[in-house]
Amino acid sequence: MASQGTKRSYEQMETDGERQNATEIRASVGKMIGGIGRFYIQMCTELKLSDYEGRLIQNSLTIERMVLSAFDERRNKYLEEHPSAGKDPKKTGGPIYRRVNGKWMRELILYDKEEIRRIWRQANNGDDATAGLTHMMIWHSNLNDATYQRTRALVRTGMDPRMCSLMQGSTLPRRSGAAGAAVKGVGTMVMELVRMIKRGINDRNFWRGENGRKTRIAYERMCNILKGKFQTAAQKAMMDQVRESRNPGNAEFEDLTFLARSALILRGSVAHKSCLPACVYGPAVASGYDFEREGYSLVGIDPFRLLQNSQVYSLIRPNENPAHKSQLVWMACHSAAFEDLRVLSFIKGTKVLPRGKLSTRGVQIASNENMETMESSTLELRSRYWAIRTRSGGNTNQQRASAGQISIQPTFSVQRNLPFDRTTIMAAFNGNTEGRTSDMRTEIIRMMESARPEDVSFQGRGVFELSDEKAASPIVPSFDMSNEGSYFFGDNAEEYDN
């Protein structure tokens, strides 16, 4: 783990906690998980779902989305002020799938948001429990990260689609708070800032007046979040320049895209947490497990152990491969979309394939898809080993990566060399080191050039047997250095459309 220093740990961010010791953190995270579980059980009762239907990941996603929508204050306010045809701002819903006479049927349900809020609060001892809501947002974000390569979004903001390893959390809503900021990748933060800068260039009043003052505060806050992700002084200094700019424009845009590229080699610290679907927490609570009393951590053995003992089902389209669908969801559960496939294969105990080789589309089923041909199958979400999630980018030494994705962002704290394609990355730096950030740029390029592919990161860190909950005997895996390590390699994943 990167030293926490003055930073709060993510469990504290996750639970809005002030400084807590490890036991208190485990208890408050457990409380959050228990609340999600209780809410899910109650919703299944309301909807009269069978046990099997309640364990269907598509039903879980609909129920999670309903509660997130019920608590989305800004959108609710907007919907009330701008009524649109056929949208009731006070209601929320989605597809629920039921097994009827041996076939899967889709039923569109509609609930009062007020009623959903009441059920959620009741499951969370009367609190709004925003930490639990954020947790579900991060699960949705991790699922998107594993399912889609955001080529269009990258290109629109002047970045290269091969930089997708920097895009963790790119679909997280803005209201996801400190826990959300911690899991956002460098590219995601750059993209958010670039969008602001572009608006400022096109709209003279963007930075002016009372609204402009708020915009400015948001801009500086985002700059500080991004600065905190960088691990070298030169990158941090460049972020200070971007933040202090009187009138952010093209120079800042250039600096930010430069920094994003540099992060492929001088990786930023991005938190990883295993956020599971509500249909995993519900049955665990129903079986009598007391998360608050037992304590829970999002970055240790607990999620692995929970998945070892969970039964989750998914709808499967006619030509999809259930094992591939399982891999997709497994990666999402562990926030591992940008991790090295060699490491993932070792931990999972079966070969993890790149996205383009998977015969599976996303987990969600569109409303126009034919239910007649839908089957369902068990998702295999178990693992051979477990490993500690990392909050750091690993040290800054790398190795060759593949054509589709030119770097990785480690999820697990496991000893290995970190793949990246130096030639491709360095070719993108057209040696432009003039301007006010020239000395920093020169320094950053120097550090990137001296990074050695064969150097090892996370020295001495290994994986653990599932029986080793105290992480007492690390097993340090050895990897084939020459092997392909990137998930979005030469990829044809669908595009994420909101």
Rank of each mutant, 00 (worst) to 15 (best):
T92Q: 05
S392N: 12
E254G: 11
G35Q: 13
V312K: 00
G435S: 10
M426D: 06
E320W: 05
A234N: 03
Y496W: 11
F206N: 10
G485P: 05
M440S: 03
N309A: 13
Y219K: 06
P410L: 09
I138C: 10
R384S: 06
D455W: 05
S3L: 14
G300C: 09
K227V: 01
F458A: 00
S165C: 11
Q399Y: 00
L193P: 01
H324W: 06
G460E: 10
K236Y: 04
G177W: 07
W104K: 02
P419Y: 02
D302V: 08
R19F: 10
G177C: 07
A22E: 03
E80N: 09
S314V: 13
E434G: 08
A218L: 03
M167K: 09
T257Q: 06
V194I: 13
I265C: 13
R355E: 03
Y385G: 09
G86H: 14
F479A: 04
Y296A: 05
I408N: 10
Q409S: 12
Y40P: 04
G94Q: 04
T147A: 12
A237D: 05
T188S: 12
A271P: 01
L256I: 14
R389K: 15
A123L: 04
K103E: 13
K90N: 14
S402Q: 09
A336N: 01
Q149T: 06
R389T: 07
G431K: 01
T45V: 09
R361H: 05
V183I: 15
D88R: 00
G282V: 01
C275A: 10
S69M: 12
D439V: 10
I197Y: 10
K7H: 00
R446V: 09
T23M: 12
K348W: 05
Q231N: 01
T45C: 05
I119W: 12
V299Q: 11
R221I: 11
F346C: 06
L259M: 10
K236E: 13
L259F: 03
E24F: 14
W139Y: 13
F304G: 04
G288L: 05
R117K: 05
N430W: 07
D491W: 06
F291S: 09
R162E: 03
Y219S: 11
P277L: 08
L133F: 06
Y289Q: 04
A179W: 11
S297Q: 02
I316N: 09
I475L: 13
R118E: 02
E372N: 12
P95V: 01
E244A: 06
G249W: 10
Y487N: 08
L68A: 05
R382P: 05
R74Q: 08
D128M: 02
Y148R: 02
S314C: 13
I41W: 14
N370H: 10
R243K: 10
A70I: 03
M239H: 00
I365Q: 08
V280D: 01
I445W: 03
E73C: 02
T350E: 02
R436I: 09
L328W: 06
R461N: 05
K357R: 05
E14M: 06
Q308R: 14
F291P: 14
E443Y: 06
S287I: 12
R452E: 05
G30F: 08
G349N: 06
T411C: 08
R156L: 06
G35S: 07
V242W: 08
Y496N: 11
T151H: 04
S367V: 07
N321P: 00
Y78A: 13
Q168T: 02
R317L: 00
F253Q: 11
W120M: 08
P161A: 15
E495W: 09
Q459M: 08
R26Q: 05
A181D: 12
E454K: 11
E292G: 13
A472K: 05
S269Y: 07
V183P: 01
E369R: 06
E244L: 09
D16E: 15
A427M: 15
K227L: 00
Q398T: 08
L172D: 02
T15W: 00
G295E: 13
L418S: 00
S359Y: 12
S262Q: 09
E434T: 14
R361Y: 03
K227F: 09
A286Y: 05
T130M: 07
L226R: 11
L341I: 15
E210T: 04
S407T: 11
L47P: 06
L466F: 15
I63Q: 03
N21R: 07
N247C: 08
N492Q: 07
N397T: 15
D439A: 01
F479Q: 08
A85R: 15
A260I: 01
S3I: 00
T257S: 10
Q241S: 07
V29G: 06
E114C: 11
E192H: 03
S376W: 03
S482V: 13
T171L: 04
S486D: 05
L264R: 01
G187R: 09
A263Q: 08
R452Q: 08
P83N: 09
S310K: 09
G393V: 09
N370I: 10
I217R: 07
C275Q: 02
G30W: 05
V463K: 09
Q168V: 05
I225L: 09
I63R: 01
G394N: 11
A286E: 11
P477I: 00
E81G: 06
F71L: 13
V190G: 07
I36G: 06
A401I: 15
R204S: 01
Q4K: 08
E115N: 05
I63V: 10
T437G: 00
A27V: 11
M163W: 01
T396I: 00
A323R: 12
S467L: 09
R213D: 04
Y52N: 15
V67W: 03
G132W: 05
Q12T: 10
G102K: 10
S287N: 12
M137I: 14
M191E: 03
I365E: 03
G212S: 07
R436T: 09
I116S: 00
A332L: 03
I316D: 00
R99G: 09
R446P: 03
D302N: 14
V100C: 03
A263V: 08
Y52T: 09
H135V: 08
P173D: 04
K184G: 06
L68C: 12
T157N: 09
S478N: 05
F291Y: 13
R416W: 04
N76C: 01
L61V: 10
E465Y: 01
L193Y: 04
I41S: 15
N430V: 11
R416I: 10
C279P: 02
Y313N: 12
P303H: 11
T424G: 00
E454W: 07
N211G: 08
T433L: 14
Y148N: 12
L381M: 12
N125W: 00
V67R: 02
R199Y: 05
V476L: 13
R152T: 03
L166C: 05
E484P: 02
N250W: 15
A27W: 10
G37Y: 06
G288K: 10
W104N: 14
F253A: 14
T188C: 12
A237L: 08
S383E: 03
I265R: 02
F71R: 07
K325G: 03
E375M: 14
I33A: 13
S335I: 02
Y219W: 15
T23Q: 14
N498T: 05
Y52S: 10
A401R: 08
A234H: 04
I138E: 06
L341K: 01
A22K: 06
I444K: 09
R26W: 02
P322H: 06
S486A: 09
R216I: 12
V183W: 03
N205D: 10
P89Y: 05
S3R: 10
V414K: 04
G187D: 08
L358K: 03
E372A: 13
A366C: 04
T62Y: 02
G268H: 03
L344V: 10
E53A: 14
R355I: 11
R117G: 09
V299C: 09
T215R: 09
V285P: 00
K31D: 02
T147C: 09
L315Q: 09
G394M: 07
I425P: 01
M239I: 14
D421E: 14
A271T: 06
Q168G: 12
R55K: 15
V194A: 15
G249D: 11
V155T: 11
A2N: 00
F230L: 14
L307G: 06
L47Q: 05
S377L: 08
S482G: 11
Q241C: 04
E320N: 07
T411P: 07
S287A: 03
R152L: 07
N321H: 03
I388P: 02
L143K: 03
I388A: 05
Y10A: 11
Y289M: 12
F71T: 05
M238Y: 03
N247Y: 07
V299F: 11
N224M: 10
R416P: 00
Q168H: 12
A387T: 14
A401M: 11
V414D: 01
G462A: 10
